[in-house]
Structures are given as C-alpha cells and as structure tokens.
Amino acid sequence: MNALTQPDALQQARHLLESTLRFVQHSDDPYVISRFGDLQIRIDVAAALLERAEALKGQSPVETQIALTEAQIASAEALIAASNAEFELTGQRTALPPTLDDPLRWKYQIVGNYRLNGVAPRSAV
C-alpha cells in the first residue's frame, strides 16, 4: 500500500456504512438516525485527515508521517464504529480487514509522543 493512498480501513468503513444503509433503508428512530450521522462524520473526518496527509507529501517527512498516522487512526476508528453499527442495526458482522492488526495504541503513542515531546516517528527520521 502506498503510504498516501486511501487506507483500506476507510474504504471498508464506507462500504459498511453503505451496506448498512441499504439494509435499514429508512427509519424514524432517533437512535438509528444519530448512529448514521455519527458514522458519516467519522468517515468524513478520516477522509479529511487523509487529504491533509496527501497535501503534506513532499514537505516535512515527519509532519507527513504524523498526518498519515492520524488518518490511519481515524480510519480504523471509523471502521470499528461502522462494524459495530452494522451488527447493532442488521444483526450481521462483516469480517474486518487485516489492516487493523497493527494496534491503535501504538499509533496514538506515535502522535502523542511527537506532539507532546517532539519525538519524531522512527520511520520519518
């Protein structure tokens, strides 16, 4: 995977949202409505963070790596939320891709260590 292409997790989150929408089709239930709103916002945030990372390409390698890590976190979180919503609203669960095998806690640590302590990720040094 090219480091600055759309993460698989974001594509999968979009797919799960679309398939869950097709299953539910229409609802007046405030919980269901807010659930779809939450998912759409999470996906949009992940996409915006990915666009930001792409815009940084060719500039600071450290800032680009941090921005990409932030996009990966948001994409993975959107996918997890979409998967949970799929199960809650349809009773089905699509298998999550192996892109989530990399623990998110390490990605949070990379971003936090850079923002708090100025320590650049090893892959960007």
Rank of each mutant, 00 (worst) to 15 (best):
G91P: 04
Q65D: 15
R93N: 06
E88L: 13
P97Y: 01
I80Q: 12
W106Y: 15
D101V: 00
S60K: 11
E70H: 05
A85G: 12
T99A: 15
T99R: 07
R105Q: 13
Q109S: 12
P61T: 03
Q92R: 15
S83Y: 06
I110V: 14
I66D: 11
S75T: 06
I110G: 03
T69N: 05
I66L: 13
P103G: 10
P98S: 12
K107S: 11
L79K: 06
V62C: 06
S75K: 09
T99I: 14
E88H: 07
D101S: 01
Q72W: 10
L89G: 08
A76L: 07
P103W: 07
I73G: 06
W106Q: 04
A81M: 05
Q65A: 14
L96G: 03
T94L: 02
T94C: 09
I66V: 15
Q72G: 12
L100P: 03
S75H: 09
I73H: 00
Q72I: 05
S60N: 14
P103C: 13
T94A: 11
P98N: 10
A74Q: 13
P61D: 07
E70I: 01
I73E: 02
L104I: 15
L79M: 10
E70R: 15
Q109A: 15
E70Y: 01
Q92V: 11
T69R: 01
S75G: 15
P98L: 03
S83K: 03
Q109V: 02
A78N: 05
A71I: 02
A95G: 11
E88N: 12
L100G: 01
A81W: 01
Q72L: 13
Q65P: 02
L100W: 00
Q92F: 14
G91R: 05
R105N: 09
A81H: 09
A78F: 08
P97I: 01
